[in-house]
C-alpha cells in the first residue's frame, strides 16, 4: 500500500505564473500572498512568545467559522508543494470535516496527503493529538474554537488581556479549587488549561485532558489557529507545558477499564460506540490510523475481526 497519496492535479505549472499551483483562479493553497505574509508574521511572533495569543487579520474562508478556519489559514500559510498533509477530526482521518478539509488542500494546493502519522510533515487536527509520538520537524496545527482559557470565567477580552499581561490567573485557580470543594475533583475533562513555559495560561483547544501530557516537551512544533476569534498561538518544540493542578489534587488523565475492541490497546483514548438500545457499547481507539497500524502489525482486541462501521453514503 502506498502510504502517501499523491493527488496532484494538473495545471500546476509551478514557476513564474501568478498563483502557480493553485486551482480555478485561486492562489496556491487558496490564500493570497499578502494574507499569507500577515499570518506568517503572526506565527513567528506566536513562536517567540509561547502560549500567548497573537491577534491576526483572520480572513473569511470558504468554509464556515467554527469548522476549522483558523487551522486552515495556518496550514495554508505554512504548506509547500513538498509537504505531506494529514488531517484528523476526533482522531480519525475519515470524519466528514477532516475529509472536507483534506479535499480543500488537495484541490487548492495539489499536495500529497497521508493517513500515516509518521509520514506527515503537517498534521491538522481537531480535538486530538495522535497517539504515536510526533517527530522533530513535524508541525501539528490545531483548530481552535475559543482560544482564551479564561473566557468562561471572564467574558470580556479587555479584562482577560489585562490578566495575561499581569500573569494574574487567580480566577482560574479559584475555579479549579471550587470544583474540588464541590465534586472532590477538578471537573474539566477537555480543554484543560495549561501553563506554557511557566508564563502564559493557554487553552489546549478542546483536546481531552488525556492528551495534555503529550504537549509537554513535544519534539514537534505546535501551532494553534482560531479563525473566528482571530488569534494564533504556538508552542515551540521541547517547551514545558504543565496542566494546572494542586499538590493535594494532582492532575490525572482519563482511564478505561476496557481495551480497544479492535486492536486491544490499553493505553489509548477510547471512543464509545453504542451497539444497541439496551446499553451495550464497544470501545475503540479514537486514533483510527494508530489502531489500523496496530492491527496491521497483528494486534487484536476482543472484537478484532469486527468490521468498523461506516457512514451511510
Amino acid at each position: 500500500m502506498n502510504a502517501i497519496e499523491n493527488t496532484n492535479h494538473g495545471g500546476n505549472g509551478g514557476h513564474g505564473g501568478n498563483g502557480a499551483g493553485g486551482h480555478g483562479g485561486y492562489n496556491f493553497a487558496y490564500l493570497d500572498e499578502q494574507s499569507k505574509r500577515m499570518i506568517r508574521r503572526a506565527i513567528l511572533k506566536a513562536v517567540a512568545i509561547p502560549g500567548y495569543q497573537v491577534p491576526f487579520g483572520s480572513r473569511e474562508m470558504p468554509l464556515p467559522y467554527g469548522w476549522g478556519t483558523g487551522g486552515i489559514q495556518v496550514t495554508a500559510s505554512i504548506i509547500g508543494r513538498d509537504d505531506v498533509l494529514k488531517v484528523i477530526d476526533q482522531g480519525a482521518d475519515d470524519t466528514t470535516n477532516a475529509v472536507s478539509i483534506r479535499k480543500f488542500f488537495v484541490r487548492t494546493a495539489g499536495i500529497a496527503t497521508t493517513e500515516e502519522t509518521g509520514q506527515a510533515t503537517i498534521i491538522q487536527t481537531r480535538h486530538r493529538i495522535p497517539e504515536q509520538s510526533l517527530l522533530p520537524g513535524q508541525i501539528l496545527v490545531y483548530q481552535v474554537p475559543i482560544p482564551e482559557p479564561l473566557r468562561w470565567l471572564e467574558a470580556r477580552e479587555t479584562e482577560t488581556r489585562k490578566m495575561h499581561g499581569l500573569a494574574d490567573y487567580g480566577i482560574m485557580h479559584v475555579k479549579l479549587y471550587e470544583d474540588i470543594a464541590k465534586y472532590g475533583h477538578i471537573e474539566t475533562s477537555y480543554d484543560y488549561p495549561v501553563r506554557v513555559n511557566g508564563r502564559y495560561l493557554t487553552a489546549p483547544s478542546p483536546i481531552p485532558k488525556f492528551d495534555n501530557p503529550k504537549m509537554n516537551d513535544m519534539p514537534a512544533l505546535q501551532l494553534f489557529g482560531a479563525g473566528r476569534e482571530k488569534r494564533i498561538y504556538a508552542i515551540p518544540p521541547h517547551t514545558r507545558v504543565e496542566s494546572l493542578d494542586f499538590d493535594d489534587h494532582p492532575f490525572e488523565v482519563q482511564t478505561w477499564s476496557e481495551v480497544c475492541a479492535l486492536c486491544g490497546a490499553d493505553d489509548t483514548y477510547l471512543d464509545e460506540v453504542i451497539m444497541d438500545d439496551r446499553g451495550t457499547s464497544m470501545f475503540v481507539c479514537s486514533d483510527t490510523a494508530h489502531c489500523a497500524e496496530r492491527r496491521a502489525a497483528g494486534h487484536r482486541g476482543p472484537d478484532g475481526d469486527a468490521a468498523p462501521t461506516g457512514l451511510v453514503p
Binding site: 509551478g14 514557476h15 513564474g16 499551483g21 492562489n27 496556491f28 506568517r40 500559510s77 509547500g80 508543494r81
Partner: peptide, 11 residues
C-alpha cells in the same frame, strides 16, 4: 523567480 514557492520555502 517563483514568488509563491520561494517565499514559502524561505518562511
Amino acid at each position: 523567480g517563483d514568488g509563491v514557492g520561494q517565499s514559502q520555502a524561505a518562511f
